[in-house]
Design a protein around this nucleic acid. Structure first.
Lengths: 141, 141
DNA sequence: TGATACTTGACTATTTTAGTCGGGTATATA
DNA sequence: TATATACCCGACTAAAATAGTCAAGTATCA
């Protein structure tokens, strides 16, 4: 079980963005330099964030990205969802003969993965971008 | 973020084992048939479980595996640890220039992943094999 | 009109996953 | 003692996912 870089980068980039977008849009180039993330990869990630209306883009010189909502309203769930960083546990395919079919001893652990998924998603639903920024400022003092 | 089959299989197999090992050892062949998991793959998994002293092996005809501890004492943490199903979030390599080096805006999200890791591990540390079996019996009624 | 910066889609090397395969060794039972 | 059962061990591999790269755009500001 692991968190992939895509999700990590998305969160890092958005925290970075949230701290600098007071007046002007923030370019991916700047984020790329500050966070050490490949520009091309960032473009892929922000394309997804834009489609899910987490950020807005401003084209042209002095362009960049701006948050599309208040940092308080952007939850980790939304970010991970946007970049396809899902919490996958069991996939109970109805077509498959093996695995979960609701019969006999199979899928003994079905409920476990459900619980786990809820447990993790619960964490993600509570945390907002604002929380992350505040947390960071506090520890910085 | 996903849970891989290895961890899933390990838990499924152990729940199966725990329910059948009252008197005799349980063979991987039986578990394989009941749970629909490849025998060869199960052998790999049980080799690891044995090395971490979660199960004991009995060789020869009528052989198989037996739990090495009480189901109550085997936590999910132990199982996942045995089969290398780790909860990985950030790796802050000291060697790398990029990523987490404790400076400036980098690793803004460091604490987040720590928290997440604790949150998940907390779940795994509480759940025992016994819990899973009980849970299953209850829902079966 | 040129530089900046977003936009899009295709391509690719690397790593991880989920096995398979081929050889063993130990032991109960006939 | 022969044999079948079942654990034991290491090497190999196909397929999928990951983490990018690359190329060719379009919009906008100065």
């Amino acid at each position: 079980m692991k968190l992939t870089s895509k999700g990590r980068y998305a969160v890092m980039a958005l925290v970075d963005l949230a701290r600098f977008d007071n007046i002007n849009p923030v370019s991916l180039r700047d984020i790329s330099l500050r966070q050490g993330i490949s520009l091309d990869y960032l473009e892929q990630i922000f394309s997804k964030l834009r489609k899910k209306e987490i950020v807005q883009s401003v084209r042209g010189t002095q362009g960049g990205y701006v948050l599309n909502k208040k940092a308080k309203e952007i939850k980790l769930t939304n970010i991970f969802d946007a970049v396809d960083e899902k919490v996958k546990t069991v996939q109970c395919k109805k077509e498959s003969k093996k695995g979960c079919n609701g019969k006999s001893t199979k899928c003994l652990t079905h409920n476990l993965w459900d619980e786990l998924e809820n447990h993790i998603n619960n964490f993600f639903e509570k945390k907002s971008l604002e929380d992350l920024i505040k947390d960071n400022v506090e520890r910085r003092i």
